[in-house]
């Protein structure tokens, strides 16, 4: 079965200013490790795009086997334009900080039947009936909501790290 998006619009963060890129990378990795996600990285691109700075692109595709039938995917796309690194003193400590336009997109998805046990014939039809009709609400409440709010949690953590103003979340 194809992967199902759990949110109508993917949570994203856009930020322009100075930030700690290494810290941001560690924050995301730690967040994923705490939740026992298997970490995978599809793209890590760093190219000298313009005189204003480099263009950085990262595509992380971590996944978590929740049950033998359900798997979570969180695709994290990070793009930085006009990326420049320089040394600065932060809280009395010498640190490497980055400057640029940052874009982060978090796409949470649920995959059914990741072991491909029911991919053909009558089993596939039965599976579709179960997933799309009989147990639709059960899956939505149990898996979709959990993953969606996990994605929002990661977004809030990133916003907090970047010291953005919209960091408080009621959800």
């Amino acid at each position: 079965m194809p992967k199902d998006k759990v949110l109508p619009a993917t949570p994203d963060v856009r930020f322009k200013g100075t930030f700690d890129f290494d810290g941001l990378y560690k924050l995301i990795r730690n967040w994923l490790d705490d939740r026992k996600y298997d970490y995978m990285e599809k793209v890590y691109k760093d190219k000298a795009a313009s005189p204003f700075g480099n263009e950085l692109e990262l595509n992380m595709i971590p996944e978590l086997k929740v049950t033998p039938y359900i798997k979570y995917h969180i695709e994290i796309l990070i793009k930085v334009f006009d990326f420049k690194e320089f040394d600065a003193v932060v809280d009395g400590e010498k640190k490497k900080v980055s400057n640029g336009r940052l874009f982060i997109q978090i796409t949470p998805e649920v995959e059914y039947d990741w072991q491909k046990k029911y991919k053909e014939g009558f089993a596939a039809t039965l599976q579709e009936l179960m997933v799309k009709r009989l147990l639709k609400r059960h899956f939505e409440i149990k898996y979709y909501d959990t993953l969606a709010y996990d994605a929002y949690d990661l977004q809030t953590k990133i916003k907090k790290f970047l010291r953005m103003k919209t960091i408080k979340s009621a959800y």
Partner: peptide
């Protein structure tokens, strides 16, 4: 459902 969140 957050569509945009930009800070510049």
């Amino acid at each position: 459902n957050e569509i945009w969140n930009f800070e510049e």
